[in-house]
């Protein structure tokens, strides 16, 4: 038996064993896939999703007759109400005014009703305008086709020349192509401190 045939005989045994070893590691050491593992969603989430249809990142935009653009967005919206309106969380609106300037609205929750083209912002409502006003209130109702918004309740605002409190605030234009006005009404009080005016 010369060297070559001894080598062949030797490999004839060794190679199948190596193959067998490789094959077994394939099954023994592979990651354990637990077929009965749980899906990464909580049951409650699934039930919520199934019970009421939910839109994430809802978005609505429109242009009023006088050319003001209104876009309304929300992190989640549930079109669950019977009257066709949708409850929304983290409601945002951005109004770009045809005559220049813009107004941003933001609130924790609210409802959007495209059929009535109305939206209502509730909870920590924050209104900021390009004319330098920051207004805080609890609720603001606004139209979506015509730019007409008003707060049922009191507002606190910091303006370009001091702090303002008022019984109510309305945003709107007197007629179609007139500039948009922000009207603080039902008793207004301004406090202006000449010593440190821009303290906001």
């Amino acid at each position: 038996m010369d060297r070559h045939s001894r080598l062949v005989a030797y490999f004839k045994v060794l190679l199948p064993l190596a193959a067998l070893a490789l094959m077994s590691t394939l099954f023994l050491l592979s990651r354990s896939i637990a077929p009965t593992g749980t899906a990464p969603f909580a049951d409650k989430d699934i039930e919520d999703r199934v019970r009421g249809q939910q839109i994430t990142g809802a978005f609505f935009s429109g242009i009023t007759a006088s050319g003001d653009e209104i876009t309304v967005s929300a992190s989640t919206a549930h079109p669950a109400n019977t009257d066709g309106s949708a409850d929304a969380e983290e409601l945002r609106a951005h109004m770009t005014l045809a005559q220049g300037g813009d107004i941003r609205l933001q609130s924790d929750t609210g409802t959007v009703d495209p059929t009535q083209s109305q939206a209502s912002f509730r909870g920590n409502v924050l209104i900021t305008t390009s004319t330098g006003y920051t207004v805080r209130t609890q609720q603001l109702d606004t139209g979506l086709e015509t730019l007409a918004a008003e707060t049922p309740g009191q507002v606190e605002a910091t303006g370009p020349f001091g702090d303002i409190t008022a019984g109510q605030m309305k945003i709107g234009a007197k007629n179609q192509d007139a500039p948009v006005h922000m009207l603080f009404t039902k008793g207004v009080k301004l406090v202006y401190d000449p010593r440190n005016p821009g303290k906001d």
């Binding site: 005014l97 220049g100 004319t131 370009p160 001091g162 922000m182 207004v188 202006y192 000449p194 010593r195």
Partner: peptide, 24 residues
């Protein structure tokens, strides 16, 4: 004291959003 705080109270304050003018 001309640098004392100034307080303005009125029935309403009207702010024009395009030119920023304000009127009590």
């Amino acid at each position: 004291d001309t640098s004392a705080p100034v307080e303005v109270t009125a029935a309403s304050l009207d702010v024009n959003q395009s030119d920023g003018s304000a009127e009590f």
